[in-house]
Protein backbone atom coordinates (compact mmCIF):
# COMPACT_ATOMS: atom_id res chain seq x y z
CA UNK A 1 0.00 0.00 0.00
CA UNK A 2 1.26 3.50 -0.76
CA UNK A 3 0.60 6.57 1.33
CA UNK A 4 -1.54 9.18 -0.33
CA UNK A 5 -1.66 11.49 2.68
CA UNK A 6 0.80 11.78 5.51
CA UNK A 7 0.07 14.24 8.31
CA UNK A 8 2.71 14.71 10.97
CA UNK A 9 1.99 16.47 14.26
CA UNK A 10 -0.26 19.04 12.63
CA UNK A 11 -1.83 21.81 14.71
CA UNK A 12 -4.00 24.70 13.67
CA UNK A 13 -4.53 27.53 16.12
CA UNK A 14 -6.88 30.38 15.29
CA UNK A 15 -6.32 33.80 16.89
CA UNK A 16 -2.91 32.79 18.27
CA UNK A 17 -2.25 36.30 19.60
CA UNK A 18 -5.70 37.09 21.08
CA UNK A 19 -7.81 34.21 22.37
CA UNK A 20 -6.14 31.13 20.87
CA UNK A 21 -8.50 28.39 19.62
CA UNK A 22 -6.85 25.04 18.92
CA UNK A 23 -8.95 23.63 16.08
CA UNK A 24 -6.51 20.83 15.34
CA UNK A 25 -4.08 19.72 17.98
CA UNK A 26 -1.05 17.61 17.14
CA UNK A 27 -2.74 15.25 14.67
CA UNK A 28 -0.62 12.58 13.04
CA UNK A 29 -2.13 10.15 10.54
CA UNK A 30 -1.57 8.51 7.20
CA UNK A 31 -4.13 7.60 4.55
CA UNK A 32 -3.32 4.99 1.98
CA UNK A 33 -4.56 4.65 -1.55
CA UNK A 34 -8.00 3.10 -1.84
CA UNK A 35 -9.14 3.88 1.69
CA UNK A 36 -12.72 4.93 2.33
CA UNK A 37 -12.30 7.02 5.46
CA UNK A 38 -14.80 8.89 7.58
CA UNK A 39 -13.76 11.73 9.88
CA UNK A 40 -16.34 11.90 12.62
CA UNK A 41 -16.81 13.86 15.77
CA UNK A 42 -19.02 16.49 17.33
CA UNK A 43 -19.38 19.95 15.88
CA UNK A 44 -16.25 22.02 16.54
CA UNK A 45 -14.08 18.92 16.85
CA UNK A 46 -11.86 20.05 13.94
CA UNK A 47 -13.11 17.81 11.10
CA UNK A 48 -13.53 20.55 8.53
CA UNK A 49 -10.31 22.27 9.60
CA UNK A 50 -8.40 19.02 9.17
CA UNK A 51 -9.95 18.52 5.71
CA UNK A 52 -8.99 22.09 4.79
CA UNK A 53 -5.42 21.44 5.89
CA UNK A 54 -5.25 18.20 3.90
CA UNK A 55 -6.73 20.00 0.89
CA UNK A 56 -4.19 22.80 1.08
CA UNK A 57 -6.94 25.37 1.57
CA UNK A 58 -5.45 26.40 4.89
CA UNK A 59 -1.96 26.38 6.36
CA UNK A 60 -1.19 24.57 9.62
CA UNK A 61 0.27 26.52 12.51
CA UNK A 62 2.78 23.69 12.98
CA UNK A 63 3.47 20.25 11.57
CA UNK A 64 3.59 19.03 7.98
CA UNK A 65 1.08 17.78 5.45
CA UNK A 66 2.45 15.60 2.67
CA UNK A 67 0.35 14.66 -0.33
CA UNK A 68 1.74 11.94 -2.57
CA UNK A 69 5.17 12.58 -1.07
CA UNK A 70 5.06 16.37 -1.53
CA UNK A 71 5.14 18.64 1.51
CA UNK A 72 2.39 21.17 0.78
CA UNK A 73 2.75 23.18 4.01
CA UNK A 74 5.49 25.35 2.57
CA UNK A 75 3.93 25.82 -0.85
CA UNK A 76 2.97 29.28 -2.05
CA UNK A 77 -0.66 30.09 -2.87
CA UNK A 78 -0.41 29.80 -6.66
CA UNK A 79 1.55 26.56 -6.48
CA UNK A 80 -1.07 25.18 -4.11
CA UNK A 81 -3.88 26.02 -6.53
CA UNK A 82 -2.07 24.14 -9.26
CA UNK A 83 -1.34 21.25 -6.89
CA UNK A 84 -4.98 20.98 -5.88
CA UNK A 85 -6.03 20.98 -9.52
CA UNK A 86 -3.87 17.96 -10.25
CA UNK A 87 -4.04 15.93 -7.03
CA UNK A 88 -7.17 16.64 -5.01
CA UNK A 89 -10.88 16.44 -5.72
CA UNK A 90 -13.35 18.37 -3.56
CA UNK A 91 -16.98 17.71 -2.74
CA UNK A 92 -18.64 20.36 -0.60
CA UNK A 93 -21.63 20.18 1.67
CA UNK A 94 -23.62 22.74 -0.35
CA UNK A 95 -22.58 21.22 -3.73
CA UNK A 96 -21.14 24.56 -4.85
CA UNK A 97 -21.52 24.04 -8.56
CA UNK A 98 -21.12 27.06 -10.81
CA UNK A 99 -24.77 28.10 -11.21
CA UNK A 100 -24.45 29.48 -14.73
CA UNK A 101 -22.87 26.34 -16.18
CA UNK A 102 -24.65 23.13 -17.15
CA UNK A 103 -23.82 19.83 -15.44
CA UNK A 104 -21.48 18.88 -18.28
CA UNK A 105 -19.82 22.31 -18.30
CA UNK A 106 -19.29 22.16 -14.53
CA UNK A 107 -17.47 18.86 -14.94
CA UNK A 108 -15.56 20.13 -17.97
CA UNK A 109 -14.43 23.29 -16.17
CA UNK A 110 -11.83 21.43 -14.10
CA UNK A 111 -10.44 19.74 -17.19
CA UNK A 112 -10.39 23.07 -19.02
CA UNK A 113 -8.26 24.42 -16.20
CA UNK A 114 -5.95 21.44 -16.73
CA UNK A 115 -5.63 22.35 -20.40
CA UNK A 116 -7.41 19.28 -21.79
CA UNK A 117 -8.75 19.37 -25.35
CA UNK A 118 -12.44 20.06 -25.99
CA UNK A 119 -13.07 16.51 -27.19
CA UNK A 120 -11.33 14.93 -24.24
CA UNK A 121 -13.27 17.18 -21.87
CA UNK A 122 -16.58 16.42 -23.47
CA UNK A 123 -16.03 12.66 -23.63
CA UNK A 124 -14.84 12.38 -20.05
CA UNK A 125 -17.56 14.67 -18.68
CA UNK A 126 -20.25 12.52 -20.36
CA UNK A 127 -18.61 9.37 -19.09
CA UNK A 128 -18.37 10.69 -15.52
CA UNK A 129 -21.92 11.97 -15.47
CA UNK A 130 -23.09 8.60 -16.77
CA UNK A 131 -21.10 6.88 -14.02
CA UNK A 132 -22.92 8.94 -11.36
CA UNK A 133 -26.26 8.14 -12.96
CA UNK A 134 -26.90 11.43 -14.74
CA UNK A 135 -26.41 10.67 -18.44
CA UNK A 136 -29.63 12.52 -19.29
CA UNK A 137 -28.84 15.68 -17.29
CA UNK A 138 -25.85 16.93 -19.25
CA UNK A 139 -27.45 20.21 -20.26
CA UNK A 140 -29.23 20.92 -17.01
CA UNK A 141 -28.08 23.79 -14.86
CA UNK A 142 -27.75 23.29 -11.09
CA UNK A 143 -31.03 25.10 -10.47
CA UNK A 144 -32.76 22.47 -12.61
CA UNK A 145 -31.34 19.57 -10.59
CA UNK A 146 -32.32 18.17 -7.19
CA UNK A 147 -29.88 18.39 -4.27
CA UNK A 148 -28.88 14.75 -4.72
CA UNK A 149 -28.32 15.23 -8.44
CA UNK A 150 -26.23 18.34 -7.80
CA UNK A 151 -24.09 16.46 -5.34
CA UNK A 152 -23.57 13.68 -7.87
CA UNK A 153 -22.47 16.29 -10.42
CA UNK A 154 -20.09 17.58 -7.73
CA UNK A 155 -18.65 14.08 -7.34
CA UNK A 156 -18.23 13.84 -11.12
CA UNK A 157 -16.50 17.22 -11.08
CA UNK A 158 -14.20 16.07 -8.29
CA UNK A 159 -13.26 12.99 -10.32
CA UNK A 160 -12.75 14.93 -13.55
CA UNK A 161 -9.17 15.92 -12.83
CA UNK A 162 -8.21 12.29 -12.05
CA UNK A 163 -7.13 13.26 -8.52
CA UNK A 164 -5.20 11.10 -6.06
CA UNK A 165 -8.05 11.30 -3.60
CA UNK A 166 -11.35 13.06 -2.93
CA UNK A 167 -12.10 15.19 0.12
CA UNK A 168 -15.77 15.49 0.94
CA UNK A 169 -16.99 17.82 3.65
CA UNK A 170 -20.35 16.56 4.99
CA UNK A 171 -21.39 15.44 1.49
CA UNK A 172 -24.77 14.10 2.59
CA UNK A 173 -25.72 16.78 5.08
CA UNK A 174 -28.20 18.47 2.73
CA UNK A 175 -29.57 15.30 1.15
CA UNK A 176 -32.67 13.22 1.79
CA UNK A 177 -32.29 9.52 2.56
CA UNK A 178 -32.79 8.32 -1.02
CA UNK A 179 -30.25 10.78 -2.38
CA UNK A 180 -27.85 9.90 0.43
CA UNK A 181 -28.17 6.23 -0.37
CA UNK A 182 -27.60 6.84 -4.09
CA UNK A 183 -24.57 9.00 -3.43
CA UNK A 184 -23.06 6.46 -1.05
CA UNK A 185 -23.57 3.69 -3.59
CA UNK A 186 -21.76 5.75 -6.19
CA UNK A 187 -18.89 6.63 -3.87
CA UNK A 188 -18.41 3.04 -2.65
CA UNK A 189 -18.56 1.76 -6.22
CA UNK A 190 -15.93 4.27 -7.34
CA UNK A 191 -13.84 3.30 -4.33
CA UNK A 192 -14.05 -0.39 -5.08
CA UNK A 193 -13.90 -0.33 -8.87
CA UNK A 194 -11.42 2.50 -9.38
CA UNK A 195 -9.57 2.24 -6.06
CA UNK A 196 -10.43 5.92 -5.54
CA UNK A 197 -9.50 7.19 -2.06
CA UNK A 198 -12.26 9.05 -0.23
CA UNK A 199 -11.94 11.03 2.99
CA UNK A 200 -15.08 12.65 4.23
CA UNK A 201 -16.23 14.41 7.31
CA UNK A 202 -19.69 13.40 8.42
CA UNK A 203 -22.24 13.15 11.19
CA UNK A 204 -24.38 10.78 9.17
CA UNK A 205 -24.53 7.27 10.62
CA UNK A 206 -25.39 5.78 7.19
CA UNK A 207 -22.14 7.20 5.83
CA UNK A 208 -20.19 6.03 8.85
CA UNK A 209 -21.61 2.54 8.38
CA UNK A 210 -20.28 2.43 4.83
CA UNK A 211 -16.80 3.69 5.76
CA UNK A 212 -14.02 1.14 6.07
CA UNK A 213 -12.01 3.38 8.37
CA UNK A 214 -13.45 5.77 10.93
CA UNK A 215 -11.32 8.43 12.62
CA UNK A 216 -12.95 10.17 15.54
CA UNK A 217 -11.83 13.68 16.40
CA UNK A 218 -12.56 15.35 19.72
CA UNK A 219 -11.26 18.82 20.57
CA UNK A 220 -8.93 18.71 17.61
CA UNK A 221 -7.29 15.45 18.63
CA UNK A 222 -7.72 11.93 17.29
CA UNK A 223 -9.65 10.03 19.89
CA UNK A 224 -9.96 6.82 17.96
CA UNK A 225 -8.94 5.41 14.58
CA UNK A 226 -10.68 2.16 13.74
CA UNK A 227 -11.06 0.00 10.63
CA UNK A 228 -14.26 -1.96 10.05
Amino acid sequence: MNEVIKITDVSKIYNPEAIPVKAVDGVTLTVEAGEFTALVGPSGSGKTTLLNLIGGLDHPTSGTVEIAGTNITTMRENALIDFRLRHIGFVFQAYNLVPVLSAQENVELVMLLQGKSAKERSDRAKELLASVGLPDKLDKRPSELSGGQQQRVAVARALASKPGFILADEPTANLDSVSTSNLLDIMTRLNKENNMTFIFSTHDQRVIDKARRVIKLVDGKIESDSRQ
Binding site: E77, D82, R84, F90, L109, V110, L113, Q114
Partner: peptide, 11 residues
Protein backbone atom coordinates in the same frame (compact mmCIF):
# COMPACT_ATOMS: atom_id res chain seq x y z
CA UNK B 1 -14.77 27.33 -4.41
CA UNK B 2 -13.32 27.99 -7.86
CA UNK B 3 -9.88 28.59 -6.34
CA UNK B 4 -10.29 25.40 -4.28
CA UNK B 5 -11.01 23.26 -7.34
CA UNK B 6 -7.96 24.68 -9.09
CA UNK B 7 -8.92 27.82 -11.01
CA UNK B 8 -5.91 30.09 -11.08
CA UNK B 9 -6.47 33.56 -9.70
CA UNK B 10 -5.56 35.30 -12.94
CA UNK B 11 -8.10 33.21 -14.85
Amino acid sequence: ILLAIGMKKWI
